[in-house]
Design a protein around this nucleic acid. Sequence first.
DNA 1: TTACAAGTTCGAGCGCACTCTAAGTCAAGG
DNA 2: CCTTGACTTAGAGTGCGCTCGAACTTGTAA
Lengths: 143, 143
Amino acid sequence: MKIGDLARRTGLSTHTIRYYERIGLLPYASRASSQQREYDASILVWIEFLGRLKTTGMPIRDKLRYARLRERGPETQEDRRILLEEHRTRVRTHIAELQACLAVLDTKIAGYAGSDMVEKIDDAATERRKRAVREGLARPLRD
Amino acid sequence: MKIGDLARRTGLSTHTIRYYERIGLLPYASRASSQQREYDASILVWIEFLGRLKTTGMPIRDKLRYARLRERGPETQEDRRILLEEHRTRVRTHIAELQACLAVLDTKIAGYAGSDMVEKIDDAATERRKRAVREGLARPLRD
DNA sequence: TTACAAGTTCGAGCGCACTCTAAGTCAAGG
DNA sequence: CCTTGACTTAGAGTGCGCTCGAACTTGTAA
């Protein structure tokens, strides 16, 4: 498989694939004939997993740590497990936060539906700013 | 309340507060005496809400759209509701993705605990890269 | 009243994760 | 052979969301 095929299959751009190789997230691909990278299907599994880590917000720095451990082979299993468990904890925490925010969002939206107090509270500050604009203290908002 | 107090109460830096005002996320604060910004407690509600939007991944561009509607007062309620509902949908989708990834993570971690096939699949590509490094085709990973 | 902490503006700089450009090489179909 | 499109490298550029620095003014407690 050449880089273009891999790009099509993974949804990454060829630029991104080369970038990932450069920084060490992807293993150095064998250059089959001439200079061109040749991939076998096993890389898809790793890229998919990288995608999961990305979706869950792991920074490249940490993915790199994981990738380096993976490079070093089976004796790093324990370290990798720990890394993943720490990440899992952060993801769980983040999901909980999101759910809390979602609840607030629901309340807010419900407030808009029934047009109640929420509006009045919200617009108090707005009125102060409008006054400032009238008085030339504030510029109208740009774009 | 002065900017430093507000910073302490919200966890934002004074730099960030001024930045938010500059781009229009925060209303232009009245300069009580001289040049210095004076805030009243109502701003805390807005900043907290901005924090929720941030936590849920809303880009500044969209927070700005919301803020501009808010500026324009009560007649924009409907637009604001729509904006928030769209955002809510995206957040829900994102939570679902995270949960799916979490399941994969769990499987992976379980695999490390029991050291099974997972390892062997994972390390196949690693071996290819090691070979490349030995042959001087790839640099060892930096940092 | 003097010291110094906290405020001001403007603009530059930073970290992240790509994304793109330029200038060139290579491979496969007609 | 020739064209065309995919590939190569090194390095510069982008967009986001802050973050910081410089140079200066203002507020407050001893």
